[in-house]
């Protein structure tokens, strides 16, 4: 289904409830009645094309909004990505951590194994935090500054220096290490968990890990499909302006 601005948001959510955290990040709260996407965007001061692009990209993995890429600023996208980072670090990861830390009270598994899992998850968490910090401290500000330079025509030296040091193309590869760790953690629990009388607590953890993985995959697909091409276009433009 292609999500369009004339549709009622309630219908869209009934069709794909995985979009709930997405609309939440845009500041749309439940109880929106029969309002259309267009109406809600105007009420909440949201760029409609941008909102539709994000909804469609989450909803349909084949969606690729080539034509719309230029119709909203990169800074909007950066803001959105920052909000989803917040969601991982402030909500999702602590939820899973809580489940893992409470395992000793919930299962008869020996403490050695549980400590191993706990340490492994906290290692993963640290890596995720580092990756997110790096994006927020280095990559995102670079993008915002670059966009300013493109629109004003004034290019500070710092932007050129950064363009030479670090191109957006390098950035996609960095996602993978963090993903591998999460995959390993799931596989260890699925395939190699020692026998236990009651593995329900582990089901819960697995379910959350799959959900987190899913959400992170969507997040990086948005970065790869929308952010990276946008930034690559700006990099080309700035290089031609310099000449």
């Amino acid at each position: 289904m292609l999500i369009q601005k004339e549709m009622k948001l309630a219908d869209v959510i009934h069709h794909d409830h995985f979009l709930i955290p997405v609309i939440n990040r845009f500041g749309i709260h439940l109880g929106f009645g029969d309002k259309t996407i267009d109406e809600l965007c105007r009420e909440n001061d949201i760029n409609t094309i941008f909102f539709l692009t994000i909804l469609n990209a989450y909803h349909d993995h084949e969606y690729f909004p080539k034509k719309h890429l230029q119709s909203f600023p990169a800074s909007l996208l950066v803001n959105y990505l920052l909000k989803s980072h917040q969601y991982y670090l402030d909500e999702k990861v602590p939820e899973i951590e809580k489940l893992i830390v409470s395992l000793p009270d919930e299962t008869d598994m020996d403490n050695g194994t549980l400590t191993l899992l706990e340490n492994f998850f906290s290692e993963y968490k640290q890596e995720l935090i580092n990756h997110i910090r790096r994006e927020e401290d280095l990559v995102y500000p670079y993008i915002v500054e670059m966009e300013k330079a493109v629109s004003s025509g004034v290019i500070p030296d710092s932007v050129f220096k950064q363009m030479a040091d670090y191109s957006i193309t390098d950035y996609e590869a960095e996602h993978e290490n963090v993903e591998e760790k999460l995959f390993d953690l799931k596989n260890i629990i699925i395939k190699y968990l020692p026998e236990t009388k009651d593995d329900r607590p582990f089901f819960k953890i697995l379910k959350e890990l799959f959900a987190l993985e899913n959400d992170l995959n969507d997040h990086s697909r948005i970065e790869d499909l929308i952010l990276v091409p946008k930034v690559e276009a700006m990099e080309r433009k700035l290089k031609s302006m310099k000449r």
Binding site: L116, F120, E123, E180, D184, N187, I188, K191, P194
Partner: peptide
């Protein structure tokens, strides 16, 4: 094993 990272292998080997 289906485990790629060193820390994942470590957990497996210990368990």
């Amino acid at each position: 094993l289906g485990i790629k990272t060193l820390s994942g292998l470590t957990v497996y080997a210990l368990m």
